[in-house]
Design a binder for these strands. Structure first.
Lengths: 337, 337
DNA sequence: GGCGGGAGTGAGAGCGCTCTCGGGAGGGCG
DNA sequence: CGCCCTCCCGAGAGCGCTCTCACTCCCGCC
C-alpha cells in the first residue's frame, strides 16, 4: 500500500491557482465575496489536484466537527438487535447526511462504560448527541448534561430528580396509542381486557400502562401483568393471566414481541384468536407483526421519522423552546383483533 | 446553555503542574520517559482541570484519527433493520472501543450516494473502513479501493474483475454450513431435499447453494427455487416447490426468514413439520428461529465474533497476509428437522 | 476631478497538539 | 577526577486551516 500519498493542501491549491490561501478557503466554503474568474480558477485547481479539506485542521479553528454522536445505552443485546433501533438510526442518518454531518456511534458496553462515553462527549469531539436512554435509573443522561453539549433524547427520559424539565426529546404517543388499542378492543365488544406491560423501568412501558388505565379505569388488578418487552416475558405473563382470569377475552400487549409470546401460549391452550381472545400489540415491528399467526393487529409508530426528527431538532439548535415532541401513532388492523 | 466554557489546553495543564507542554503531552500519551514525581504532578493537574485532549489538534499532527468507518451499502431498509447487522455492529464496537477507536457509521442512501461515501473515505477522516458489500454489482468496493485506505470487508465480496484477490474479508463458512444442513436432512432419512436459495447476487446465497450441491449432487433442477432472503420470498418459493414436486420431504432454506415463510406455507397446505417435511434454516437469527412453529433447526454463525474479527484485522494493519478469514458454523437442533 | 466608501484580495496570526532537537544533570568508567 | 553517555526535560517549529485586518482598487458622488 502506498500509504503516503501526501494530500494536497490549501497552500498547494493556492499556488496552482495563483491566489492566496484565504481566497481558496473562501471558494471552498461557498465562494462568497470572490469574483467569478477567480472562483473558476480555484475550482479548477481544486479539481486538478483532487483537493479535499483536512477536517482536523478545520475543526481545530472552527470548533465545529460536523459530526454528532448517537449514544445507545443498552446493556442487553436484545434491544440493540431490535429493528426498532435500526430504523431510528436510518432516519437519523438520512437527516444528518442531508446536512453534511457524520454519525459517530457510541455503544456502551456494560455498566462502567458510561464514564468513557461521558468523557468522549465532554471532550468536544462532536457537536451534539442523540441519546437513547432506555432505563429510568440510567446515569448517562446526567453525565451528558454535565458534558454541556446539545442533546436530544429518544424517548421521554424518566428523570427522578427535578432537573430534567428542559430536556429535549422525541417520543411516540405511547399513552394515546395505548388508548387507541384498548378502545379498539372495547369497540369489538370485549369486556375482560387484560394488559401485559413492558419493562416498567422504561417510560414507554409506563405510558402505555397509563393509556390502558385511561380507558379501563380501575380495572381488576389481576388483569395487569408485568412483562419485559420480550416474547418469553409475554409467554410467562400470558400463562399467569390465563391462570388467574380464565375468562379474559382480550389482551393488549405492550409490544409486538410480547404479543407474539402471548399468541403462542393462547394457541397452546386452545384459545382461538381473535374469536375467543382478541390480541393487539404495539410497534408494528414488521418482521414480527406480519409473521405471527394470526397476523397481529397493532399500533404503528413512525420510527424512522422519530430518528429524523431527533436529528433535525439537534441540528436546528436550541430552537423554539421545544422541550418534547410527541409523534402520533396509528392503529394497524390485521387479523388478531 | 453556557456554550463557551473554554476547555483547558495542554498549556493550562503545563502551567498548573509547573512543567512544559511537551512533558504533559508525554504523560498524557503514556508517560514514558518521564520521572515519577513529575508524572504524578501532571496527572493531578489533568485531574483537577478536567483536561481532555483536543482530538482535532492531535489528528492534525499525527494524521491518525482513532476512528474507523463502518460502511453499509444497502438500499433496502430490510437488510439494514436486520438483527444480523446489528450484532456485527456490536462486535465491531466492542473491539474498537477496546482499542480507543471511534465508530463512524456511513449508510448509503440510494444509488448516487456512493460518491459521497467515497469522498469521505478519501478525505482522510478515518484510519480505515469496514465495508459490508452485499451485492455483486456494488460499485462501492471499487471506490473504496481507490480511496486507498485500509479496508476489511464483511462477507466475501463478489468481484467480477480480477482485481480483488488481495482483498481482506471475514465471512462465515456458508458453504460448509450448507453442507452440514443438508447432510443433517439426509441423515434423517430424507431423500427429496429441496433448496430455497437466497438472493443470488450475494455471495452468501451462492455459497450456500454450492454447499447444497456439494451434498446433493446434480439434483432434480425443480428442487432448487430462487428466493430472496425474505419471508415473502420463502412463501413464494415454497408454493412453487409444493406445486412442482409434491413429494418433497425436506427443505433447506437459505436463511431463517425464508424458512419462516416456508413453514407458514407448509402449515397452510397441511404438511406437518417435521413429520412430513423437515425444514432447516440458516443464521440462527434468534427472535425468528425460536418463535417459529415448530422452532427452527438451523445453522448458527457467530455474528458478533465476525464483527469483532473484522475490527481486529483492520486495526492490526495489513498483517499476516491474511486475505480472507472464514468462521465456522454450527448446527443448532430444534424441532423442525 | 477629488474624495469617501464598499468590495475583493492577501498577509499573518493563531487553533492545540506532537515531535524533534538540544541542553543539562547525573552516573559509570578510565 | 574528568569525560562521555544516557536519561529527562524544555524550547520551538510546524500540522492545515480559518478569520481578522489592512490594503488596494474602482465606482459613484459632489
Amino acid at each position: 500500500m502506498s500509504e503516503t500519498v501526501p494530500r494536497p493542501t490549501l497552500e498547494a491549491v493556492a499556488a496552482r491557482a495563483g491566489v492566496s490561501r484565504a481566497t481558496v478557503s473562501r471558494v471552498v466554503n461557498g465562494g462568497d465575496g470572490v469574483r467569478e474568474p477567480l472562483v473558476e480558477r480555484v475550482r479548477r485547481a481544486v479539481e486538478e489536484l483532487g483537493y479535499v479539506p483536512n477536517q482536523a485542521a478545520r475543526s481545530l479553528v472552527t470548533r465545529r466537527h460536523d459530526a454528532i454522536a448517537v449514544v445507545v445505552a443498552e446493556p442487553e443485546t436484545r434491544v440493540f438487535a431490535d429493528p426498532f433501533f435500526a430504523l431510528q438510526l436510518r432516519g437519523i442518518s438520512k437527516e444528518l447526511t442531508a446536512h453534511d454531518n457524520q454519525l459517530v456511534l457510541l455503544l456502551t458496553e456494560g455498566r462502567d462504560d458510561h464514564a468513557r462515553v461521558g468523557r468522549y462527549l465532554a471532550g468536544g469531539h462532536v457537536d451534539g448527541a442523540l441519546v437513547f436512554s432506555l432505563h429510568l435509573d440510567d446515569p448517562l443522561p446526567g453525565l451528558i448534561q454535565r458534558a454541556g453539549i446539545p442533546t436530544v433524547f429518544g424517548g421521554r427520559p424518566g428523570w427522578r430528580d427535578g432537573t430534567g424539565d428542559d430536556v429535549v426529546y422525541v417520543d411516540s404517543d405511547n399513552r394515546g396509542g395505548a388508548r387507541d388499542a384498548v378502545r379498539h378492543l372495547v369497540g369489538l365488544g370485549r369486556s375482560r381486557v387484560a394488559h401485559i406491560t413492558g419493562a416498567l423501568d422504561q417510560t414507554s412501558a409506563v405510558d402505555r400502562l397509563e393509556g390502558f388505565r385511561d380507558v379501563m379505569g380501575d380495572v381488576d388488578a389481576r388483569l395487569v401483568v408485568e412483562g419485559d418487552f420480550t416474547p418469553a416475558g409475554g409467554e410467562r405473563a400470558m400463562r399467569a393471566l390465563l391462570d388467574r382470569c380464565p375468562d379474559i377475552d382480550a389482551v393488549f400487549a405492550a409490544n409486538d414481541l410480547t404479543a407474539s409470546g402471548a399468541l403462542r401460549v393462547l394457541r397452546e391452550h386452545g384459545r382461538r384468536v381473535p374469536d375467543d381472545v382478541a390480541v393487539i400489540g404495539f410497534d408494528d415491528m414488521l418482521p414480527i407483526a406480519e409473521q405471527t399467526d394470526p397476523p397481529l393487529t397493532t399500533i404503528r409508530q413512525d420510527i424512522e421519522e422519530m430518528g429524523r426528527l431527533m436529528a433535525r431538532l439537534l441540528l436546528k439548535g436550541p430552537g423554539d423552546a421545544t422541550s418534547g415532541v410527541v409523534l402520533p401513532t396509528t392503529l394497524v388492523r390485521r387479523a388478531s383483533a
